[in-house]
Amino acid sequence: MTAGEPAITEEPGAAVLQGRAVGDTVFKAALTIAVLAVPALLGFLVWELWVGSRLAIERYGFDFITGTTWDPVAEEFGALPLIVGTLTSAAVALVIAVPLSLGVAIYLTEFSPKWLRQPVAFVIELLAAIPSVVYGLWGIFVLIPVLKDHVFPFLRDTLGFLPLFQGPIYGNSMLAAGIILAIMVMPYIMSVSREVLMAVPASQREAALGLGATRWEAAWTAVVPYARSGIVGAVILGLGRALGETMAVTMLIGNRHEIAASLFAPGYTMAAVIANEFTEAASDIHYAALSYVALSLFVVTVIVNGLARILIWRVSRGQAGGGQGV
């Protein structure tokens, strides 16, 4: 272009400004389809479960949820022990895993020497890569013998006044399943909480330290509260995993349709019963009952996650804690 000449040489009215970004249109359409596919898939899944369990729904209705007998031969199906087992094993897992993983995350972000941070985090995250059947085998050959011979008797001797730690010790039990689940969900809770804690601005730490807080006080009064909604999110991620985990639990929980007060007693979970019985189900109603269990598991998961979302929302909204006393 030579100086002094107008930049646009086309005649007036030539469509120099018109045009379509075809790439954008295609890209947008592709993404829209991908986005819509997710809820569509979910809807299809629910519908499929619904159709599969129709027979059982019509026959048992809500009694299925409250019933406690599971007898495929007599065609009597009640899923309450499974629901209780799923919730109990997940709760045990969280009780063990949350303090542990949170402790590790706080240690790694606030206290550990710099050279230690990456290796420890890496090793813990590696735990997430182990297949769950391997956890199951390790549980059977290593964990259960140790629990049965040492840990459970110790618990019964020290905490035996609680119904949770009474009764005969078999090895395979709700507690064993809860412990293996705790180990399995720890990497998730730990690595997400660690990310969240690392994202807390340094100024918050410095403000606390500048007030004369010790490192521990700074972590506990400034850093952790700042990150708390993210930490709750990390716990929910772990919870979701604990509720749905199948293989390792099936191998360790003992697979007994029963609601026991003691964590030493065997139990059963929804996921485990589906894994165990689906391939050998003999009758249509048995299939339908298993589908109904799957549907119930889906509903339980949705409810638990919904409650957890509300918790996050309340935690991040009620920042000042309203009437909470100082």
Partner: peptide, 20 residues
């Protein structure tokens, strides 16, 4: 930069250094 503790109330912020 102002560094109030966001999870605390105004009162709690001022009292934060006293708890120690």
């Amino acid at each position: 930069k102002p560094t109030p503790f966001p999870t605390m109330s105004i009162y709690q912020n001022v009292a934060a250094g006293l708890k120690v």
